[in-house]
Amino acid sequence: MKMRLTATHIILTVLAFVVVLIWLLPFYWAVSVSLRPPSMTFTCKGLCFPYLQFPPTLEHWKTELSSREMLRALLNSSIIAFTASFFTLVLGTPAAYALARFRFSPRLVVIFAFVFCAILAFTAASFGVDWRLALLAAFVIFLGFAMTLGNRFEKRLGNEDITLWFLSQRFLPPIVTVVPFLLIMSQFKLIDTRLALILVNITFNLPFAIVIMRQAFIDLPIELEEAAMVDGASFFGSFYRVALRLTAPVMAATLMIILAFCWNELLFALNLGTLKAKTIPALLAGSASTRGIQFWFVAVRALIALIPPTILALLAQRYIVRGLTFGAVKG
């Protein structure tokens, strides 16, 4: 594009800068609040620059960063986010590869039968039938059905449908599963453990990883893998040495985006992590106290929470559009 220095152009350029400044302002203001002495929190006029309008203090940062609870939350958040996003990819990438390269064609009727039997077993169990018995009975019914009647219907599903099914999990409002997770986790004595939060985060990010990695594999020319196989590589070998290597940048970006999602997760963190597994967002959620909000600490906590995902956003910059649209648009 050519640069033309017309009046409109200058005005529009200035406008663009103004927009960006407005978007940066909240960050700046939080920093400013975090450096102010408490009595200045709401009495500072103008843009309130440190040094010019008030003597900045690091007191609040020190207090927060030396609190045992804050350090533990930082550690928890890091462990949970790293482990969960790593295992999301470990589980999701092969599935994505399979959906990109192979054809799956399950019979529609079998799936209906499966769902029906699952509901049947569940209903029976919830009305007091022993759950092992219910499960067994449902399984027998399912097998019988699939082997007899199931063969009579030819309508089949394709890879696209399976992908969409995964994607639909992402649209699910997580609040629906909070209570069941709470009860299940308490059955397995997993409440307030990092493991519980890791499992939940993997579950909610799996669809994301599958959809986005599948697109990456589809974009990869299939000839490269076929050439490797002609050279004697096994199917697994070509996946490992060719496909994975070539999609490594997308994988890294996906990892970072999932990391940010895990770091920001609040709803389950509030419910499943109270003490030992409390994460940063859950810690932040407690900022309104018995005796009101202390804005100077809140600003510090909010900034501490914001910094890591913001850095991730910078690192994953090239793939951010692709990531947030689940691979539908390539930026």
Partner: peptide
């Protein structure tokens, strides 16, 4: 205890 931090009410 309710949230309040090292210099907050009750906590």
């Amino acid at each position: 205890v309710n949230t309040g931090g090292p210099k907050g009410g009750i906590s």
